[in-house]
């Protein structure tokens, strides 16, 4: 008899648990499109950003999609590039052509989900031939390099990535173009010209050290 009661209780509790578990609030169902987005910045803490005065930005983005890489310039891409341009100048950096020895090279990339599964984001440019080659910046034979440790991102959806490389000290850093700063935009609806300005502005807002003047 006691066993029967125990079974009855356990059945009841399990049933009730299943019911309430089904009622559990899923955080993802309570996010607006804007709230799904995150803006991530990382930087080389040994870099003195005020020692850099000029920059150049690639005129189109690298699109990495299903393990293929190519160059493209959609309205959204152009908006992201323009927003980076604007924020850099607001921080006191002077834009020059890439053949005018800029101190900083800026690459913008659009990365999609891949059919091959997860991508280890760290050093992702090493994996895709379509990424801007250091030769584009006048440093053939050099390689890109991350001089600091930052989070490893496994890309399961799209993201926009903005990379700033150190051209000024390339020759003295073992033929490497050190990554100075990286900004990531992830979440829903990020490949839109309407989002670009706010996204890039947010990245710069949380990078107060990024300025040409002390």
């Amino acid at each position: 008899m006691c066993m029967k009661r125990m079974k009855l209780l356990l059945t009841g509790l399990l049933g009730a648990s299943a019911f309430f578990t089904a009622c559990t609030k899923d955080p993802l169902n309570h996010l607006s499109t804007e709230e799904t987005r995150i803006y991530v910045t990382s930087y080389d803490s040994s870099a003195v950003f005020s020692s850099y005065k000029t920059y150049s930005i690639a005129d189109s983005v690298t699109v990495i999609d299903n393990s293929m890489a190519k160059k493209d310039l959609s309205d959204a891409d152009a908006a992201y590039i323009a927003a980076v341009d604007r924020n850099m100048q607001q921080r006191g950096y002077v834009k020059v052509e890439r053949n005018q020895n800029p101190d900083i090279a800026i690459n913008v990339s659009r990365i999609y989900n891949t059919s091959t599964g997860l991508i280890d984001y760290t050093d992702y440019w090493d994996y895709y031939g379509g990424y801007w080659d250091p030769g584009y910046w006048g440093y053939p034979g050099y390689s890109y390099y991350v001089p600091y440790v930052y989070g490893v991102y496994q890309v399961t959806e799209g993201l926009m990535s903005i990379d700033m490389f150190d051209l000024k000290n390339a020759a003295t850093h073992g033929n490497k173009l050190d990554l100075l700063w990286n900004g990531l935009v992830r979440g829903e609806g990020i490949f839109s010209a309407n989002v670009a300005d706010t996204a890039v502005q947010t990245l710069f807002n949380q990078s107060s050290y990024l300025k040409a003047n002390e």
């Binding site: 009730a16 559990t24 955080p27 309570h30 995150i38 991530v40 910045t41 990382s42 989070g151 949380q206």
Partner: peptide
């Protein structure tokens, strides 16, 4: 059984030594 949930307004979080993230946090 008890279910707790809260969504915090967008803020900047230190997510690594050299990294910060602006996000809406949900617990």
């Amino acid at each position: 059984y008890q279910d707790y949930y809260q969504k915090f307004p967008r803020a900047v979080y230190q997510t690594d030594n050299h990294e910060v993230t602006s996000a809406v946090l949900s617990n």
